[in-house]
Design a binder for these strands. Sequence first.
DNA 1: CACCAGGCAAGTA
DNA 2: TACTTGCATGGT
Length: 217
Amino acid sequence: MSTHQRIREFYSVLYEAYGSQGWWPGEDTLEIILGAILTQNTSWKNAKKAIDNLKREGLISVEGLRLISLDELAQLIRPSGYYNQKAVKVKNFIGFLVEEYGGDLGKMLSEDTKRFRSKLLRIRGIGPETADSILLYAAKRPVFVVDTYTYRILLRHNLIGEETTYEEIQNLFMDSLPQDTGLFNEYHALLVKLGKERCRKKPICKGCPLEYDPHNV
DNA sequence: CACCAGGCAAGTA
DNA sequence: TACTTGCATGGT
Protein backbone atom coordinates (compact mmCIF):
# COMPACT_ATOMS: atom_id res chain seq x y z
CA MET A 1 0.00 0.00 0.00
CA SER A 2 1.27 3.49 -0.83
CA THR A 3 2.24 5.96 1.84
CA HIS A 4 -0.58 8.26 0.77
CA GLN A 5 -3.10 5.47 1.09
CA ARG A 6 -1.81 4.59 4.55
CA ILE A 7 -2.12 8.23 5.62
CA ARG A 8 -5.75 8.14 4.54
CA GLU A 9 -6.34 4.79 6.19
CA PHE A 10 -4.84 5.91 9.50
CA TYR A 11 -7.39 8.67 9.70
CA SER A 12 -10.33 6.30 9.33
CA VAL A 13 -8.89 3.92 11.89
CA LEU A 14 -8.17 6.66 14.42
CA TYR A 15 -11.55 8.30 13.99
CA GLU A 16 -13.21 4.92 14.38
CA ALA A 17 -11.21 4.21 17.53
CA TYR A 18 -11.41 7.58 19.27
CA GLY A 19 -14.14 9.65 17.62
CA SER A 20 -14.22 13.43 17.37
CA GLN A 21 -11.75 15.24 19.65
CA GLY A 22 -13.44 18.64 19.62
CA TRP A 23 -10.33 20.73 19.07
CA TRP A 24 -9.26 23.51 19.58
CA PRO A 25 -10.25 23.76 23.25
CA GLY A 26 -10.50 27.56 23.28
CA GLU A 27 -13.31 30.03 23.01
CA ASP A 28 -12.22 32.95 20.87
CA THR A 29 -9.47 33.39 18.33
CA LEU A 30 -7.14 35.36 20.58
CA GLU A 31 -7.44 32.69 23.23
CA ILE A 32 -6.61 30.03 20.65
CA ILE A 33 -3.51 31.94 19.57
CA LEU A 34 -2.36 32.40 23.16
CA GLY A 35 -2.93 28.70 23.77
CA ALA A 36 -0.80 27.84 20.75
CA ILE A 37 2.12 29.80 22.21
CA LEU A 38 1.66 28.73 25.82
CA THR A 39 1.44 25.01 25.06
CA GLN A 40 4.83 24.92 23.34
CA ASN A 41 6.64 21.84 24.70
CA THR A 42 4.20 21.88 27.61
CA SER A 43 1.14 19.84 28.54
CA TRP A 44 -2.17 21.41 27.61
CA LYS A 45 -3.18 21.12 31.24
CA ASN A 46 -0.44 23.54 32.29
CA ALA A 47 -1.09 25.87 29.36
CA LYS A 48 -4.75 25.93 30.38
CA LYS A 49 -3.86 27.10 33.87
CA ALA A 50 -1.97 30.02 32.39
CA ILE A 51 -4.91 30.84 30.10
CA ASP A 52 -7.29 30.71 33.06
CA ASN A 53 -5.10 33.14 34.98
CA LEU A 54 -5.21 35.57 32.06
CA LYS A 55 -8.97 35.14 31.78
CA ARG A 56 -9.47 35.76 35.47
CA GLU A 57 -7.58 39.05 35.08
CA GLY A 58 -9.59 39.98 32.01
CA LEU A 59 -6.47 39.96 29.89
CA ILE A 60 -7.60 38.02 26.84
CA SER A 61 -7.70 41.17 24.74
CA VAL A 62 -5.28 43.03 22.52
CA GLU A 63 -5.34 46.13 24.71
CA GLY A 64 -4.97 44.16 27.93
CA LEU A 65 -1.99 42.25 26.68
CA ARG A 66 -0.47 45.35 25.12
CA LEU A 67 -0.64 47.32 28.36
CA ILE A 68 0.38 44.73 30.95
CA SER A 69 4.02 44.76 32.00
CA LEU A 70 6.27 41.96 30.87
CA ASP A 71 6.96 40.88 34.44
CA GLU A 72 3.30 40.77 35.45
CA LEU A 73 2.48 38.81 32.33
CA ALA A 74 5.29 36.37 33.05
CA GLN A 75 4.00 35.75 36.57
CA LEU A 76 0.46 35.10 35.36
CA ILE A 77 1.59 32.50 32.83
CA ARG A 78 4.02 30.74 35.19
CA PRO A 79 2.16 27.40 35.17
CA SER A 80 2.83 26.96 31.46
CA GLY A 81 6.58 26.79 32.03
CA TYR A 82 9.32 28.81 30.25
CA TYR A 83 7.27 31.74 31.46
CA ASN A 84 9.87 34.44 30.88
CA GLN A 85 10.40 33.39 27.28
CA LYS A 86 6.69 32.89 26.67
CA ALA A 87 5.86 36.34 28.06
CA VAL A 88 8.21 37.81 25.45
CA LYS A 89 6.62 35.64 22.77
CA VAL A 90 3.12 36.86 23.65
CA LYS A 91 4.34 40.45 23.64
CA ASN A 92 6.05 39.90 20.29
CA PHE A 93 2.83 38.56 18.81
CA ILE A 94 0.77 41.47 20.15
CA GLY A 95 3.36 43.91 18.82
CA PHE A 96 3.09 42.26 15.41
CA LEU A 97 -0.70 42.41 15.50
CA VAL A 98 -0.74 46.09 16.41
CA GLU A 99 1.97 47.09 13.97
CA GLU A 100 0.82 45.08 10.95
CA TYR A 101 -2.96 45.23 11.36
CA GLY A 102 -3.61 48.08 13.77
CA GLY A 103 -4.53 45.53 16.42
CA ASP A 104 -7.43 44.27 14.30
CA LEU A 105 -7.60 40.49 14.65
CA GLY A 106 -10.20 40.19 11.90
CA LYS A 107 -7.90 41.95 9.47
CA MET A 108 -5.04 39.67 10.42
CA LEU A 109 -7.15 36.54 10.07
CA SER A 110 -8.25 37.46 6.55
CA GLU A 111 -4.69 37.72 5.27
CA ASP A 112 -3.71 35.43 2.42
CA THR A 113 -2.62 32.07 3.88
CA LYS A 114 0.92 31.89 2.51
CA ARG A 115 1.67 35.52 3.29
CA PHE A 116 0.22 35.14 6.75
CA ARG A 117 2.31 32.05 7.46
CA SER A 118 5.57 33.66 6.40
CA LYS A 119 4.79 36.75 8.46
CA LEU A 120 4.02 34.65 11.54
CA LEU A 121 7.32 32.82 11.13
CA ARG A 122 9.20 36.12 11.34
CA ILE A 123 7.89 36.68 14.87
CA ARG A 124 10.45 35.63 17.45
CA GLY A 125 8.91 32.77 19.37
CA ILE A 126 6.63 31.49 16.63
CA GLY A 127 7.96 28.51 14.72
CA PRO A 128 6.31 26.26 12.16
CA GLU A 129 4.04 24.34 14.51
CA THR A 130 2.75 27.41 16.32
CA ALA A 131 2.25 29.27 13.04
CA ASP A 132 0.33 26.37 11.55
CA SER A 133 -1.77 25.95 14.70
CA ILE A 134 -2.76 29.59 14.39
CA LEU A 135 -3.54 29.13 10.68
CA LEU A 136 -5.61 25.98 11.23
CA TYR A 137 -7.33 26.57 14.54
CA ALA A 138 -7.64 30.35 14.70
CA ALA A 139 -7.80 31.31 11.01
CA LYS A 140 -9.56 28.08 9.94
CA ARG A 141 -7.24 27.53 6.99
CA PRO A 142 -6.67 24.04 5.60
CA VAL A 143 -3.08 23.74 6.86
CA PHE A 144 -1.83 20.53 8.45
CA VAL A 145 -0.14 20.91 11.84
CA VAL A 146 2.84 18.65 12.50
CA ASP A 147 3.98 18.06 16.06
CA THR A 148 6.32 15.68 17.89
CA TYR A 149 3.55 13.08 18.16
CA THR A 150 2.96 13.20 14.42
CA TYR A 151 6.66 12.73 13.77
CA ARG A 152 7.00 9.90 16.30
CA ILE A 153 3.94 8.01 15.10
CA LEU A 154 4.88 8.22 11.42
CA LEU A 155 8.44 7.24 12.23
CA ARG A 156 7.40 4.23 14.25
CA HIS A 157 5.06 3.09 11.53
CA ASN A 158 7.82 3.44 8.94
CA LEU A 159 6.11 6.12 6.91
CA ILE A 160 9.02 8.54 7.25
CA GLY A 161 12.72 8.44 8.09
CA GLU A 162 14.58 10.12 10.95
CA GLU A 163 15.66 13.01 8.76
CA THR A 164 12.26 13.92 7.38
CA THR A 165 11.66 17.64 7.84
CA TYR A 166 8.62 19.47 9.18
CA GLU A 167 7.58 20.67 5.74
CA GLU A 168 8.01 17.23 4.19
CA ILE A 169 5.76 15.65 6.79
CA GLN A 170 3.25 18.43 6.35
CA ASN A 171 3.25 17.91 2.59
CA LEU A 172 2.82 14.18 3.06
CA PHE A 173 -0.51 14.82 4.80
CA MET A 174 -1.58 17.67 2.55
CA ASP A 175 -0.82 15.69 -0.62
CA SER A 176 -2.72 12.65 0.66
CA LEU A 177 -5.93 14.27 1.81
CA PRO A 178 -8.62 16.66 0.61
CA GLN A 179 -7.78 20.25 1.63
CA ASP A 180 -10.38 20.41 4.36
CA THR A 181 -9.97 22.46 7.53
CA GLY A 182 -12.26 20.24 9.58
CA LEU A 183 -10.42 17.12 8.48
CA PHE A 184 -6.97 18.53 9.25
CA ASN A 185 -8.25 19.76 12.60
CA GLU A 186 -9.58 16.34 13.55
CA TYR A 187 -6.62 14.38 12.20
CA HIS A 188 -4.06 16.38 14.14
CA ALA A 189 -6.10 16.07 17.33
CA LEU A 190 -6.45 12.33 16.81
CA LEU A 191 -2.69 11.93 16.37
CA VAL A 192 -2.16 13.74 19.66
CA LYS A 193 -4.74 11.51 21.32
CA LEU A 194 -2.99 8.39 20.03
CA GLY A 195 0.43 9.75 20.92
CA LYS A 196 -0.59 10.54 24.47
CA GLU A 197 -1.59 7.01 25.25
CA ARG A 198 0.57 4.92 22.96
CA CYS A 199 3.35 6.37 20.85
CA ARG A 200 5.49 7.92 23.58
CA LYS A 201 9.25 7.81 23.71
CA LYS A 202 9.07 4.38 25.28
CA PRO A 203 7.21 2.40 22.65
CA ILE A 204 3.88 0.93 23.53
CA CYS A 205 2.73 -0.72 20.32
CA LYS A 206 0.66 -3.63 21.56
CA GLY A 207 -2.99 -2.88 21.05
CA CYS A 208 -2.30 0.21 18.94
CA PRO A 209 -5.35 0.98 16.79
CA LEU A 210 -3.01 1.34 13.82
CA GLU A 211 -2.13 -2.33 14.36
CA TYR A 212 1.54 -1.89 13.78
CA ASP A 213 3.36 -5.12 14.48
CA PRO A 214 7.05 -4.45 15.11
CA HIS A 215 7.91 -8.08 14.26
CA ASN A 216 6.17 -7.99 10.92
CA VAL A 217 7.70 -5.11 8.99
C1' DC B 1 14.18 9.73 42.08
C1' DA B 2 13.79 10.16 36.68
C1' DC B 3 11.17 11.38 32.87
C1' DC B 4 7.88 13.75 30.08
C1' DA B 5 4.82 17.52 28.07
C1' DG B 6 0.46 19.69 21.60
C1' DG B 7 8.79 24.07 20.55
C1' DC B 8 11.84 27.52 19.56
C1' DA B 9 15.96 30.21 19.38
C1' DA B 10 20.68 31.05 20.39
C1' DG B 11 25.25 29.44 21.01
C1' DT B 12 29.31 26.85 19.43
C1' DA B 13 32.76 25.23 16.16
C1' DT C 1 26.01 23.80 8.08
C1' DA C 2 25.45 20.55 12.05
C1' DC C 3 25.09 19.75 16.70
C1' DT C 4 24.19 21.31 21.49
C1' DT C 5 22.10 23.94 25.20
C1' DG C 6 18.67 26.91 27.77
C1' DC C 7 14.22 27.66 28.98
C1' DA C 8 10.75 25.80 33.70
C1' DT C 9 6.32 24.34 35.74
C1' DG C 10 3.60 20.41 37.08
C1' DG C 11 2.14 15.52 36.63
C1' DT C 12 3.32 10.40 36.82
